[in-house]
Amino acid sequence: MLNSPLQRYQQASVQTANPGQLILMLYDGAIRFTKLGIEGITAGKYDMANTNLKKAQAIIHELTASLNHSYEISKDLAQIYEYWLHRLIEANLKKEVQPAVEILNHLADMRESWKQIIKGSAGAGQSPLEASSV
């Protein structure tokens, strides 16, 4: 049950978002949780790091599950996502910041790429998912 106005707003945002917006939301979440995981490791708050890195991993699993395998690039994206998961797990297990920082940079770059794909496909009158591979 959603009690707060913020929770109701967030649910409505997800329910009314188009597929491209959902992808950006997933990347935003993965970026946010990876940053919090890094903060947790840096501060020695390993419960915080574990919780947030696992949330980032769950989002990457969702990105993997959303791939449309009728496109060739989906295979490449699946391998990228698998690598990201590996590095986040490594950061969490070893409580090392560097693997998570690496993935944070990749997440930010990929988010920007998706933003450009979505922006370009909107101008062409296409669904972003028709123009891309997820």
Rank of each mutant, 00 (worst) to 15 (best):
H69T: 07
L22K: 02
A58I: 00
Q15V: 03
E96F: 10
D28N: 01
G37Q: 04
S121L: 12
A43E: 13
N52S: 10
L67N: 07
N3S: 05
I103Q: 04
A78C: 03
M25N: 13
I38H: 03
L88V: 06
V14K: 13
R32E: 01
E82Y: 05
R111C: 01
A100V: 11
K54Q: 12
E96V: 13
E112W: 09
P5Y: 10
A56N: 15
Q79M: 05
Q79P: 00
G120F: 06
D47W: 07
T42C: 04
K94C: 07
S132N: 10
S132T: 09
L85F: 02
L6T: 05
L24W: 00
W114N: 02
A49D: 04
A43T: 09
T51P: 04
F33V: 13
K54I: 15
Q10C: 12
A49P: 11
Q79K: 01
N50Q: 11
L53P: 00
H106Y: 08
Y27I: 11
I73M: 12
K35S: 04
E62M: 03
N68R: 01
E112K: 13
L6D: 09
H86T: 14
Q11C: 11
I59L: 07
L67T: 11
E96I: 14
E112H: 14
A78P: 05
S121H: 08
I38L: 02
K55E: 09
A58Y: 01
V134R: 00
N92Y: 08
G120A: 06
S66L: 15
L67G: 14
R111Q: 06
L93Y: 00
A43N: 07
I31E: 03
G125Q: 00
S132G: 02
Y46N: 14
L63T: 01
Q15W: 02
H86L: 09
V97Q: 15
D109C: 08
N68I: 02
S13F: 02
P99A: 05
S74T: 05
L67I: 10
P99E: 10
H61K: 10
K45F: 08
K119L: 11
Q7A: 15
S132W: 13
L2D: 09
E90R: 10
G125A: 04
R8V: 13
G123N: 12
V134W: 03
S74P: 03
A49W: 11
E112Y: 13
Q116N: 15
L77E: 05
E72R: 03
K94M: 01
E82R: 06
I117A: 06
W84Y: 00
L85V: 08
